[in-house]
């Protein structure tokens, strides 16, 4: 069992999707997260164990490497792709209730901002960390965040902006969310965003990297 879980974690850490995937070159022709996850479930390993000791371990490692500039966006995207492929096998267990998500995270780039790479990375890593992610995409209006929040009480909201100009739009969204649903945790991120700005606009979490967000979320929820 341990070996299979380790293999899943390794494949996700290094972005190995399946046997046919040419990446990474030194794992060419070998099995990937896809096959190992299927094998683990077929071997009777509990789906929750596959998630927490396989997928999440792999994503945690890549998240830390990303934070330390040991890997960059392309490698993280490949890890996320491997994770998503493995997750496909686990989805039925989410639906049946055998695995429960950590919570729901509503994410989008703020209105006016069409840069989604950071948002995509965060969304992928949240999924790999056991969150149910509702990705609203790019250029998301304040009302869309609020409407989605109505349908998912208790969800965390994540706002992303790459531009200094669109970063200012976060303020309005945070204000409206806090006015309508004061208990909502709002996380913000993006190249120009800082902790100072986060404090200034009344958001709850700022992290310069996805891994920090995951850790902050665990801390915030644990503290509740």
């Amino acid at each position: 069992m341990d070996e299979l879980l380790e293999n899943i974690a390794t494949c996700i850490e290094f972005g190995k999707i399946n046997t046919g995937s040419p990446f990474p070159p030194d794992m060419r022709g070998k099995k990937g997260a896809d096959e190992y996850t299927r094998e683990a479930l077929d071997a009777g390993i509990n789906p929750h164990t596959v998630l927490t000791r396989g997928l999440m371990v792999g994503m945690d490692k890549v998240g830390k490497k990303f934070r330390e500039n040991k890997v960059f966006v392309p490698q993280v995207l490949m890890s996320a792709k491997a994770m998503n492929t493995a997750m496909e096998h686990l989805m039925p267990f989410f639906y049946s209730g055998d695995i429960s998500a950590k919570g729901t995270f509503i994410i989008g780039t703020v209105f006016g901002d069409l840069h989604d790479i950071g948002k995509n990375l965060v969304a992928m890593m949240l999924k790999g960390n056991g969150w149910n992610v509702i990705d609203l995409g790019m250029d998301v209006a304040t009302d869309t965040f609020l409407k989605t929040l109505e349908g998912h009480p208790g969800a965390v909201v994540g706002l992303s902006a790459l531009l200094t100009t669109t970063m200012a739009n976060m303020h309005q969204i945070v204000e409206r969310i806090k006015e309508k649903k004061p208990q909502t945790i709002v996380a913000i991120g993006g190249a120009p965003v800082t902790q100072d700005f986060c404090d200034k606009i009344g958001a709850d979490i700022y992290s310069p990297d996805p891994q920090g967000l995951l850790e902050d979320l665990d801390n915030k929820l644990f503290a509740r």
Binding site: P22, F23, P24, P74, L77, M78, D116, N120
Partner: peptide, 12 residues
């Protein structure tokens, strides 16, 4: 597309 291209670099 940035996501697609960065992954394409790795895959093809």
């Amino acid at each position: 597309g940035i996501t697609e291209m960065l992954m394409h670099l790795m895959m093809d």
